[in-house]
Design a protein around this nucleic acid. Sequence first.
DNA 1: AATATTATTGCAACAAAGTTGCATTTTTGC
DNA 2: GCAAAAATGCAACTTTGTTGCAATAATATT
Lengths: 143, 143
Amino acid sequence: MYSKKSPKEILHQYGLKVTNARVKVLHVLMQSQVALSHGDIFSRINGNGLDKVTLYRTLSSFVNAGLAHKVATEDRTWLHALHMPEERDEGVEDHAHFVCDTCERIYCLPLVTEAAAAVPIKESGFQVKSHEYRLHGTCPECH
Amino acid sequence: MYSKKSPKEILHQYGLKVTNARVKVLHVLMQSQVALSHGDIFSRINGNGLDKVTLYRTLSSFVNAGLAHKVATEDRTWLHALHMPEERDEGVEDHAHFVCDTCERIYCLPLVTEAAAAVPIKESGFQVKSHEYRLHGTCPECH
DNA sequence: AATATTATTGCAACAAAGTTGCATTTTTGC
DNA sequence: GCAAAAATGCAACTTTGTTGCAATAATATT
């Protein structure tokens, strides 16, 4: 899905210095279809000795650079996921997240912009700059 | 907006015991157009000596009873707001929240269900049970 | 290829938000 | 009014994430 580009190339493209930590974290994120918590990523990487603070800062740098985004969960943690490839190319700001109430995975879904724009802000005076559509239910794994 | 019913009546209606804490918290929520944090509510009530834990538990009881709902914020706290009156009557599960990027207030907006339903879950296998549409931008107070 | 500059890392200590256990008090159905 | 059940207050605790700072690593330049 993230096609031919290597973590290193992607980091370059986003103006991030190429470090061990970043390559590893990016690699983990690239392999996941779902948004991951700090703990998810941490446990997939250690062994390779990476400080928890470094991981926080790495994720933060990804978000700042526009490479990833984060989603607040029900249990006051953050999940991180890379932007969809088409988002990365086009700078789209819309997001749809599907929260599975059974397994608690959060999937990032492509969101068609017309649907987002159709939402009625009848109360005028609100200027919308970005969207997040969040769906709850049961994911394919949990049927 | 919450019309004629008193906090006491509403608590009864939702099967919650009528206590000082609940009446005070409900009163505060009824007077607010925006979702409030624990801190917001706490500071509007003390003077009247209410323990922080009691407030957490009170809010929790409101959510469990279906009287209020909560929204996770960008800084990993919860905001609480009563359901819209029409939601309280009809058991609608959709939500739209407008997050003002300037003043950080979160408004609960009525969300028209057709718009929500129109979101494309082309990836089938996802069973949607509830929605939250989250909009970011600038609110009328901040223009 | 070595170096200077600048950003990143690791560690320890810290902060904030929310939770748990338990004894005491309050509600409420009878 | 009384008994049973639930809510409250307090203190200690957990979890998640942050800050300061010295040591280390990455990159542009020579």
